[in-house]
Simulated scan of single mutants.
Amino acid sequence: MILVNFDFEFMIRIIPIMLKYSTVTIRLSFLAILLGFTISFFIAIIVYAKVPILSKVFKVYISFFRGTPLMAQLFCFYFGILPVFSKLVLKVSSFQAALIILSLASSAYMAESLRAAISSIHRGQMEAAQSIGMTYMQAMFRIILPQAIKVATPTLFSSFINIIKDTSLVFAIGVKEMMATAQLEGASGYRYLEAYVCVLLVYWGITSIMGFVQRRIEVRLGKSVGEIN
């Protein structure tokens, strides 16, 4: 009965609209991945090195963002924190607010992945590098991190894909992306099923491309899919 009432023509008609707003999703995802990975990079090094005070602060940071719902983080930041400081700082758009929270939340997951990967590298390599005159940071960037990133690639890409899927929540704070568009288009003709199926297909397409890129990178790194040495 549902398939009989399913309007394929309506779905085909709104696909170009979904694809148009998918650029917002892709741009938000790309920026969140870039910023989140950059933040996680430094957090992982600081936590691994057990830098006094900072390592404990970042452990709390990781625990907070991993232990609370993303939707609650978005609401708390956009509707709670920003209005309090709106007179003291520049006005932040809903897109910028979503980018900040997605970057911070994703950095907590990626930092743990990187820290675990760094810890998997035998400490003897660090000691050997320092014994030939390398500083701690030189050994970290030249010896340890290149190996750790290879180990962390599968879990990092899982985080990247999760970021893409998490962008579906930002419509709740007013970002006009695919989910917001699907609601509007679905409401216009009471064709919510068709609109949401369309969104699912576009997200599936984007994450499938990410999965393909992941497999290609793993092959180039000399790793089979999902294998962690």
Rank of each mutant, 00 (worst) to 15 (best):
M1W: 08
V4G: 12
V4W: 01
F8W: 15
F10K: 05
M11F: 11
M11G: 10
M11P: 04
I12Q: 14
I15H: 05
M18E: 05
M18F: 05
L19R: 07
V24G: 03
V24F: 13
L28I: 13
L31W: 12
L31V: 15
A32I: 13
L35Q: 09
I39K: 06
F42E: 01
F42W: 06
I45S: 04
V47H: 05
K50T: 12
V51T: 10
V51S: 06
V51D: 00
V60M: 07
S63E: 11
S63A: 14
R66I: 15
G67S: 14
P69C: 09
L70M: 15
M71T: 15
M71L: 15
M71A: 14
Q73M: 08
L74G: 12
F75Y: 15
F77S: 07
Y78H: 14
I81W: 09
I81R: 06
L82N: 00
S86P: 02
K91S: 11
S93E: 04
S94D: 03
L99A: 06
L104S: 00
S106K: 08
S107N: 06
S107F: 02
A108S: 08
E112P: 06
S113M: 10
L114E: 11
L114Q: 02
A116T: 09
A117P: 02
S119W: 02
Q125D: 03
E127I: 07
A129M: 03
Q130M: 14
I132D: 01
I132T: 13
M134H: 10
M134K: 06
M137H: 11
M140P: 08
L145M: 10
P146I: 14
I149R: 00
K150I: 01
A152W: 03
T153H: 04
T153P: 02
P154M: 13
F157S: 00
S158G: 15
S159P: 09
S159F: 13
F160M: 12
N162L: 06
N162Y: 00
I163T: 12
D166I: 13
D166M: 12
T167N: 01
T167L: 09
S168W: 12
I173F: 08
I173G: 02
I173R: 00
G174C: 09
K176E: 07
M179K: 11
M179P: 07
L184M: 05
E185S: 06
A187V: 10
S188M: 04
G189N: 04
G189Y: 05
G189T: 13
G189F: 09
Y192I: 10
Y192G: 08
A195W: 05
Y196T: 14
Y196P: 08
V197I: 13
C198W: 10
C198S: 15
L200Y: 11
V202S: 09
W204A: 09
I206D: 01
T207Y: 03
I209S: 03
I209M: 10
M210A: 14
R215V: 12
R215P: 08
I217M: 12
E218N: 03
E218W: 03
L221A: 07
K223N: 13
V225M: 07
G226E: 03
E227S: 00
E227L: 02
